[in-house]
């Protein structure tokens, strides 16, 4: 779901930057409101940005396609409102270093991963109702949030791509290819869901405060 340069029209790129700017502003405002010292969350956000940055290099073969880890759900679950700026920074480095997603598409890509991350965060917050310290709700909500984040991100990317196929291309071929790639993201969502659940259970055991801070 990293969209490279030259695939989407310029208007979409501009809209993506505008939306990403708004989301960043909203996230920073929420961080300022909810944390007495916003700097406290930065070490955690910084380390997870590094994990997010490297995750896209991990390719997972889902025959016939090959997908890579996204970890947007994990970012949302563990970081909360810090997730959007963290994803923005991670995507910037991916674009500059590995040409993974275009720089002009940075805004679009940030929305494609950052907004599902915030959705994963709000799903994971339901643990407040189901039992914050018990293992099962934490694991299940971590899994669900992460799965939904991957699925939603892939779906939004697919819709954007299919809606803007240039006239000179064979739209049906492109649609079939996008559908195939979209299907490959379902097992990826399961893998990331399990991974997020494992991370959540681990943090719950060794450092439950790290999960609490995001609330």
């Amino acid at each position: 779901m990293h969209i490279p340069d030259g695939i989407l029209p310029v208007s979409v790129a501009v809209g993506g930057f505008a939306a990403a700017g708004g989301m960043t502003w909203l996230s920073l405002r929420q961080i300022e409101r909810k944390h007495s010292d916003p700097r406290q969350g930065i070490p955690k956000a910084s380390l997870l940005t590094a994990v997010f940055f490297m995750a896209s290099l991990v390719h997972i073969p889902v025959p016939p396609a090959s997908v890579h880890l996204v970890l947007s759900g994990l970012m949302g679950v563990v970081l909360g409102w810090y997730a959007f700026p963290a994803i923005l920074v991670g995507l910037f480095f991916q674009a500059v270093m590995f040409q993974h997603g275009g720089l002009t598409m940075l805004g679009v890509n940030a929305c494609l991963m950052g907004i599902p991350a915030l959705l994963a965060f709000s799903i994971f917050r339901l643990r407040g109702l189901l039992g914050e310290t018990s293992r099962v709700p934490n694991a299940v909500l971590g899994f669900a949030g992460s799965f939904v984040a991957v699925a939603l991100g892939a779906l939004l990317a697919a819709l954007l791509i299919v809606a803007t196929v240039p006239a000179y291309l064979d739209a049906s071929v492109e649609r079939a290819a996008v559908t195939g790639l979209l299907a490959a993201h379902i097992p990826l969502g399961v893998i990331e869901g399990v991974f997020t659940a494992m991370v959540v259970l681990f943090l719950l055991r060794v450092q439950p405060d790290l999960l609490k801070e995001s609330l």
Partner: peptide, 10 residues
């Protein structure tokens, strides 16, 4: 221009 499933390069 090479393109497949939203991946591509010019």
């Amino acid at each position: 221009r090479v393109r497949q499933a939203g991946h591509g390069e010019i």
